[in-house]
Write a protein that binds this DNA or RNA. Structure first.
Length: 845
RNA sequence: GGGCGCGUAGCUCAGUGGGAGAGCGCUCGCCUCACACGCGAGAGGUCGCUGGUUCGAACCCAGCCGCGCCCACCA
């Protein structure tokens, strides 16, 4: 420590982390109640994932709270694990197969799933290792995976029970078909983008008449699946046509003209083609009117035989061209114009969603949502910032059935078995041997469950549910959850519903929706845009503590741009901590750390320290990480280092025992206070502290001692600091050489000893004539002072004072202010005015 | 279409009713025996615009302009 004037994080972090793990500090005893303990279930990152800035921020927040609570002596559990991430993981392995010139279809389901497991064993722990780099104090002894054995059991139990309650059912229904991943996806995985398409107007002849109904569409190829034309029931233009039929161009199918409120008479011609098989709105209308549902586009995105010989086999895009050409040929194409509208795309594969009807498994949500709404309304689950509470509630109140099946191979294969012989369906946690009715063989459902179905169970499945484990008793409900707002519905809401339905209690007490860290230029961080900032690179360059401090300091309730300056600030703070600690630890006498105030400055420092502890702690508890970090920084840097250490240096050099004890005490408390934010550097410094009995990670967290607060000392030292500043500014102004000690004489109150020392003034009782006055200090003539500059300085100060006097006079001259403002505000203003006038008078002498 | 958020110093952001702040950057002076990743001193803002409420508005209200996000079934 003696020689190292720089803190080198890379030399420290891996070693310190290993010590923590060896100490077993991250694996708490499963004892006590959830109210006494503290637990967090990490938002499980995808196994395919690499640590990105969102993980790092999220992790820094969780770790700060987990560490603080662990230091407070609570059993603190931070459950770690990964999500099998169906589509993403399957895509990675499919890509590998493609590179080998094969495909999953070629090798078959069983071999494919084996390949994915092999991939997982080899690469799946990458992100876990990356969390360690961050210093995350997760329970690495009990890492979970959403497809591990116990977890699968929980998933099957949940599926079975929801099925038995009648919530889970199978239906032919309109789904978002993702041609990219060849699977249905949920509404929440669809993003709408503005796209310019062509809006085609097509004439549909009315049967037995020479009239036509003109409909508009951006998807003319879907007309092949039209089963009606709809108009608004109040639309007089078409009132007589309702109940009649149109003849579908190209195919000649007879389709009814129906009336439905959904149709906007103002849009286009007021006539709408109805395609229940390929449009979500039309599907609803179709079901309402009992229309036939025809599918002309298959899961492969190609036209099927229903589209007719002429179009079958074409891709949808090709079919569009062909249909338009055919319509034009027949003179049915009335108009085409460019049209900008929003179009659904898959967030997973990026492909344009093909709405189509298919046989899927759904989960009815109304019954599950009701209690999940109540607990949030009653603040049994608190959502912060407050505005997200409303967003959550509004979404929950309009919740729709959840399509839980996915046409993938990687995931929880749906625990349903069919008997082809007698058409029985079995839903079970364990595979049934054979059909109970006909003894025939059973065939398991091919589809797997939506990844989010299993993530929804995360807080309790990781604790051993459905078994009544000690872990579940000790740590469920978990204490809090930090999350990005984009998964509020996808994940958070579903955990609340499942938690209430299965273990029977909320999954967490507090939800903190954190800000999004954008790229430096304000765009979103994204791999594909190349705008991402790699947290591991930042850790390599500046250390994990620096990144953690930076992220917490830049975090906010609103989105913020990634700030290199804040990370640098964190690195600087680590270095400053190191060097201030060197000064203290290498300089102190051999004494016990204890508050031993001898001077007013000691009392000031202790008072400020306790105030800071109280404030920073309160901010951490309120998830106000940014202010917690910057307040701790400001106290340590400015008050402790810039002022107190400079003030007590002479006493420290003499190895005075009082100041030694006080400094050791203050250092211990500062290290403890900062440990949740910067665990590595504080732990490293602690290893040199004479009070050390064990690791800082499990040392007690400082609790503010109100008895050390001292308003008088604070005021007195504040005045001394202010005077020192003014004296320094004065010497800068007259360009006195930095090293020269200037003569001065104090009049009235004698300033504290440190004022002269830190401002480099020597106070003499006598001496010559004063050339200037700074507060109670008369500065005496000396060769080092440029007298011409003094007058300029005086005049500048007088000007400042005149303007202040004028401002205060104006305010106090306002009768209504004096009458209506609170008395103490008016009094304060009066005192200021007096002070300014006095100083002005003094300077004008 | 509905909702939410934001516009404060050159940059990134705090500040939600009583004299405009931080970090970085910039200027000047310092290698003062913990730290030059440092120390000291400064310069720099019509607080998006317009009205209103108030003794008093960056802060509350209304409207407008600009930016971002979420939700939504107008072809």
């Amino acid at each position: 420590m003696q020689q190292k004037t720089r803190y080198e994080p890379t030399e420290v972090e891996a070693r310190v982390f290993a010590e923590w793990v060896e100490g077993g500090y991250f694996h708490p005893q499963a004892e006590g109640s959830p109210a006494e303990n503290f637990s967090v279930a990490i938002p499980p990152p995808n196994v395919t994932g690499a640590l990105h800035m969102g993980h790092a921020l999220n992790g820094a927040m969780q770790d700060a709270l987990v560490r603080m609570n662990r230091m407070r002596g609570r059993n603190a559990l931070w459950t770690l694990g990964t999500d099998h991430a169906g589509i993403a993981t399957q895509a990675v392995v499919e890509k590998m197969l493609a590179a080998e010139g094969t495909s999953r279809q070629e090798i078959g389901r069983e071999a494919f799933v084996e390949r994915v497991w092999a991939w997982k064993e080899e690469y799946g722990s990458r992100i876990v290792e990356q969390y360690k780099r961050l210093g995350a104090s997760c329970d690495y002894e009990n890492e979970r995976f959403t497809l591990d054995e116990g977890y699968v059991r929980a998933v099957y139990r949940v599926f079975k029970q929801l099925y038995d309650k009648g919530y889970i059912y199978r239906d032919h229904y309109m789904v978002n078909w993702d041609p990219g991943s060849h699977s249905a996806i949920s509404d929440l995985e669809v993003e709408n983008r503005e796209v310019e398409d062509t809006l085609y107007s097509i004439d549909y002849p009315v049967e037995g008449s020479d009239r036509v109904l003109t409909v508009a569409t951006v998807r003319p190829e879907t007309m092949l699946a039209d089963t009606a034309v709809a108009v608004n029931p109040g639309d007089e233009r078409y009132a007589d046509l309702v109940g009649q039929h149109c003849l579908l161009p190209l195919l000649g199918r007879r389709i009814p003209v129906i009336a439905d409120e959904h149709v906007d008479p103002e849009f286009g011609t007021g006539a709408l083609k109805i395609t229940p098989g390929h449009d979500p709105n039309d599907f609803e209308i179709g079901r309402k009117h009992g229309l036939e549902e025809i599918g002309v586009i298959g899961p492969d995105g190609r036209m099927n035989e229903e589209a007719g010989e002429r179009f079958a086999g074409l891709s949808a895009a090709e079919a569009q061209e062909a249909v338009v050409a055919a319509l034009r040929e027949q003179g049915r194409l009335r108009d085409e114009e460019p049209y900008v509208h929003s179009v659904p795309f898959s967030e997973r594969s990026g492909a344009r969603i093909e709405p189509l009807i298919s046989l899927q498994w759904f989960c009815r949500m109304d019954e599950l949502a009701a209690p999940a709404i109540e607990v949030v309304e009653r603040d049994e689950v608190r959502i912060a910032p407050e505005r997200w509470k409303r967003v959550y509630l509004e979404w929950m109140r309009e919740i729709r059935p959840w399509c839980v099946s996915r046409q993938l191979w990687w995931g929880h294969r749906i625990p349903v078995w069919y008997c082809d012989a007698c058409e029985e369906t079995y839903v079970a946690e364990q595979p049934p041997e054979r059909c109970g009715s006909c003894e025939g063989p059973l065939r398991q459902e091919e589809d797997v469950l939506d990844t989010w179905f299993s993530s929804a169970l995360w807080p309790f499945a990781t604790l051993g549910w459905p078994d009544e484990t000690p872990q579940l008793r000790a740590f469920y409900p978990t204490s809090f959850l930090t999350t990005a707002r984009e998964i509020l519905f996808l994940w958070v809401a579903r955990m609340v519903m499942m938690g209430l339905e299965f273990p029977g209690d909320v999954p967490f007490r507090d939800v903190y929706v954190h800000s999004v860290i954008q790229a430096r230029d304000g765009r979103r961080m994204s791999k594909s845009l190349g705008t991402g900032v790699d947290p591991l690179e930042e850790i390599d360059k500046h250390g994990a503590d620096a990144l953690r401090f930076g992220l917490l300091a830049m975090s906010s309730t609103q989105d913020v741009r990634f700030s290199d300056a804040k990370v640098q600030q964190g690195a600087d703070l680590a270095n400053k901590l190191w060097n201030a600690s060197r000064l203290i630890l290498l300089g102190v006498a051999e004494v016990e750390a204890a508050p031993r105030p001898r001077t007013v400055e000691d009392r000031w420092l202790l008072s400020r320290l306790e105030a800071t502890i109280a404030s920073v702690t309160a901010k951490l508890e309120q998830y106000d990480f940014a202010h917690a970090a910057s307040e701790a920084y400001a106290f340590f840097w400015s008050e402790l280092c810039d002022w107190y250490l400079e003030i007590v240096k002479p006493r420290l050099y003499e190895r005075e025992e009082d100041v030694s004890a006080t400094l050791l005490w203050a250092l211990e408390r500062v290290l403890g206070l900062l440990h949740p934010v910067m665990p590595f550097v504080t732990e490293e410094i602690w290893s040199y502290h004479p009070s050390r009995r064990g690791h800082l990670a499990v040392h007690s967290f400082p609790e503010a001692d109100e008895s050390l607060r001292d308003a008088e000392a604070e005021a007195e030292v504040r005045a001394g600091i202010e005077l020192t500043r003014r004296l320094r500014a004065w010497r800068d102004l007259v360009e006195a050489p930095a090293a020269t000690v200037l003569p001065a004489r104090a009049e009235g109150v004698e300033p504290q000893e440190f004022v002269g020392r830190l401002a480099r003034f020597e106070f003499e009782p006598n001496g010559g004539d004063p050339v200037a006055a700074v507060g109670p200090v008369k500065i005496l003539a000396s060769a080092a002072i440029d007298t011409a500059a003094i007058e300029a300085r005086l005049e500048a100060r007088r000007e400042e004072l005149r303007s202040e006097v004028k401002r205060a006079e104006g305010k106090l001259g306002n009768e209504r202010f004096v009458e209506r403002a609170p008395a103490e505000v008016v009094e304060e203003e009066r005192q200021k005015l007096e002070r300014y006038r006095a100083e002005l008078e003094e300077l004008s002498e």
